Simulated assay, not measured.
Amino acid sequence: MAKATKKRPTRKPYTAADIKLLKQHSKAKTPVSKLAKLMKRSEGSLRQKAGTLGIGLGHQR
């Protein structure tokens, strides 16, 4: 009998609206945990995208 393979999660691409929302929350210094729940993405994903865009995320000490 063949062993069932795990289904890999599919990546959800960032839309222009997602990027706009990310920039707005960056300016407002919204906590990353709240933003992750709002956008239904992981904190790591949001931090990586913010890094590639060259914007800060969260409280920025």
Rank of each mutant, 00 (worst) to 15 (best):
M1E: 10
M1S: 11
A2W: 00
A2D: 03
A2H: 01
K3G: 00
K3P: 00
K3N: 03
K3Y: 00
K3W: 00
A4H: 04
A4K: 06
K6E: 10
K7S: 04
K7G: 02
R8E: 13
R8N: 13
P9N: 08
T10R: 13
T10W: 03
R11Y: 10
R11H: 09
K12E: 11
K12S: 08
K12V: 12
K12R: 11
P13Y: 08
P13K: 10
Y14A: 11
Y14L: 15
Y14N: 03
T15A: 05
T15W: 00
A16L: 11
A16S: 14
A16N: 11
A17G: 04
A17Q: 14
A17L: 10
A17T: 15
D18G: 06
D18A: 02
D18C: 05
I19M: 04
K20N: 13
K20F: 04
L21K: 11
L21W: 00
L22K: 01
L22I: 07
L22H: 06
K23H: 11
K23I: 07
Q24I: 15
Q24W: 08
H25P: 05
H25I: 04
S26T: 10
S26D: 14
S26E: 09
S26H: 13
S26W: 13
K27W: 07
K27S: 14
K27D: 15
A28N: 13
A28R: 15
A28Y: 08
K29V: 07
K29F: 11
K29I: 04
T30L: 03
P31W: 14
P31E: 15
V32F: 08
S33T: 15
S33M: 08
S33Y: 13
S33G: 04
S33F: 13
K34G: 04
K34D: 12
L35W: 10
L35G: 06
A36M: 10
A36S: 15
A36F: 12
A36V: 12
K37Y: 05
L38Q: 13
L38C: 01
L38I: 14
L38F: 11
M39I: 13
M39Y: 05
K40D: 12
K40W: 01
K40C: 00
K40A: 06
R41W: 01
R41G: 05
R41Y: 04
R41H: 03
S42A: 06
E43D: 11
E43P: 07
E43G: 05
E43L: 01
E43N: 09
G44D: 06
G44K: 05
G44R: 06
S45C: 12
S45P: 06
L46T: 03
L46N: 00
R47N: 14
R47A: 13
R47T: 15
Q48G: 01
Q48E: 12
Q48L: 09
Q48Y: 09
Q48M: 09
K49N: 02
K49W: 09
K49L: 04
K49G: 00
K49P: 02
A50V: 03
G51Y: 13
G51L: 05
G51A: 08
T52H: 09
T52G: 02
L53D: 01
L53H: 04
G54C: 05
G54I: 02
I55M: 06
G56P: 06
G56Q: 12
G56I: 06
L57T: 02
L57R: 03
L57Q: 01
G58I: 08
G58H: 02
G58N: 05
H59F: 09
H59C: 06
H59L: 05
Q60F: 01
Q60P: 00
Q60C: 05
R61W: 09
R61Q: 07
R61M: 05
R61A: 08
